[in-house]
Simulated scan of single mutants.
Amino acid sequence: MRPITPAESNGAPPISSIELTPAFKLVFTSVVIITIVSLAVGVTLALIGSDDEGVKSVLSVVMSVFQLGAGATFGLLGGKAM
């Protein structure tokens, strides 16, 4: 008798049988691209930008988008693994 893995004990399919649909791939790729672009813009603004209030507010928004994108990435991966 073979041992029961944790994935089998909670009714989840084995990792090798998780199917990635084209819609999931599109959403995941979009979120990752937006996250990477927002991080690049944020780092660029932080290094090159002036101390103007407009630049600071744009930097704040861009970094918020990065945080949301990172959270969405982990959420998508976690939801797919369940």
Rank of each mutant, 00 (worst) to 15 (best):
A23H: 09
A7H: 00
P6A: 02
V31R: 00
L59D: 05
S60Q: 06
M1S: 14
A23S: 09
V65D: 04
L20M: 01
V43P: 02
V58Y: 03
S16L: 13
I36E: 15
V43R: 05
L39K: 13
L77I: 04
V32I: 10
V27E: 01
G79C: 03
D51I: 07
V41C: 12
P3F: 04
D52F: 05
P22A: 12
V32K: 04
F66K: 11
A23T: 12
K25Y: 08
E19V: 02
A72K: 00
L45K: 11
R2Q: 09
K25T: 15
M1V: 07
S38C: 14
I4M: 10
D52S: 06
G11I: 01
S9G: 05
V37N: 07
G79R: 05
M63S: 11
S64K: 12
G54T: 12
A72P: 00
A12T: 10
L47D: 02
A46K: 13
K80H: 02
L45I: 14
V55R: 02
M1Q: 08
M82T: 10
I34D: 00
T73Y: 05
M63G: 06
T29N: 11
T5Y: 08
E53Y: 06
S57M: 08
G69P: 03
S16T: 13
K56Q: 05
G79S: 08
S30D: 06
V31S: 01
T29R: 04
E8S: 11
G75D: 08
I48L: 15
E8W: 05
F66G: 02
G75P: 02
P3R: 03
I15P: 04
A72M: 02
